[in-house]
Design a protein around this nucleic acid. Structure first.
Lengths: 212, 212
DNA sequence: TAGATTGTTAATCGATTAACAATC
DNA sequence: TAGATTGTTAATCGATTAACAATC
């Protein structure tokens, strides 16, 4: 690592979406200043944690007063890359892919599904909300046309690696992978794994511990 | 904590689904014994980590030989509560709810969506794969009839707290919450949060760091 | 016995928290 | 100035890793 960028805990970044939401609420209520303690109560973390998290990105608050809501929102947007709109390609137009394409939570955070892709011709052209489902063979072409950066993999596990390779060849910079498979891709490709089963099995584990 | 149960890292439990999958693979290939090093390579963690994780649950391996695949699979199923089938109620028959109801990954891990619920009468009775969408008012009644334990919340954020309270009143023991809202529920209710936006915003953050 | 791999200890690394000086 | 709250330090807590004795 010689790029001069400071590292901060991964957990810190994963809390920023929470901060973003609570600050958006304050903003809608026309609250201009908010203390770390108030936010902490609402989110369910310690105020120390919040101040520490923010401190990695400079002195964002005002001593004695708190944090300026709109300023902090802008900073968080920048930190999370929400200041630029990112366009996503959903590969795999099954139920999960369709659900993601129509998910308002993405748009609210500056992320836009621009197209879907599938190998099944019966799915072509029938996407949700005005979106088009393209043949997977058109991935590279449409990526350029529509300016997509992130490939979202909602394909079956068995084809995930092949599809990932196609995404890499199509020059996607990042992959959001819902298939429960470790992908082998060049190290300059950013991969984020999303395993829907981990959460519910953690819950199941607690249930088993508690009730048998 | 006076219940005599040993605590182990949360991160340990979150790796067990990975172990389960890789061991299922070995099992299908009729491989009887596997070393921590082999598994480590496949999953992308250290072999130390794997041995440590397993050690919380006893001496599960054979020194000099490795781990017995079927025995280890059985242990993991027990640890994750997969030895008993758990039935889920999906509340909110929108796209995400429908996608989860049809998600094969759940069944593969001993979890079964038994019914969906919605307040919108146009959605009643039209569930995917033979599943019924019931009026939300029937939640408690159907819970008893169908033996459901876990409430899956795929409802809009604004109604999530109200729906959670209904689930608690209906005597659900656990909630898997997809709404980006901290729920206020009694402490004996197990709540697992699933925030789909955290992963993609983490990715967006890395993208912004790397390319601006 | 020789070779292999576990299970466990101790060292290391990383993240959280408490406390308080700085300062609005 | 008095009161409030940040930003930061040091202490604590928790998780990972390396190393190796135990043992198959």
């Amino acid at each position: 690592m010689a790029d001069g960028l400071i590292a901060f805990p991964k957990a810190t970044i994963s809390r920023f979406p929470l901060y973003f939401r609570v600050l958006t609420d304050y903003n809608h209520q026309d609250i201009a200043l908010v203390s770390s303690e108030e936010m902490a109560q609402k989110i369910g973390v310690t105020s120390s944690q919040i101040r520490k998290d923010f401190s990695y990105f400079g002195s964002l608050g005002i001593r004695g007063a708190g944090y300026d809501v709109t300023y902090l929102l802008d900073m968080i947007k920048e930190i999370l890359g929400m200041d630029k709109k990112r366009r996503l390609a959903v590969i795999g137009a099954g139920k999960l892919g369709m659900a993601l394409a129509g998910y308002s939570g993405l748009k609210q955070h500056g992320l836009e599904v621009a197209a879907l892709f599938d190998t099944d011709r019966r799915k072509w052209a029938q996407g949700p909300g005005g979106l088009t489902v393209f043949p997977l063979t058109e991935l590279a072409e449409q990526k350029e046309k529509l300016g997509m950066e992130i490939a979202v993999l909602t394909v079956p596990a068995v084809v995930a690696q092949t599809v990932a390779e196609l995404a890499v060849k199509s020059e996607f910079k990042a992959i959001w992978n819902f298939a429960p498979v470790r992908l082998k891709v060049p190290s300059n490709i950013i991969v984020q794994y999303e395993d829907l089963v981990v959460g519910i099995l953690t819950l199941s584990h607690h249930l088993a511990r508690k009730f048998g």
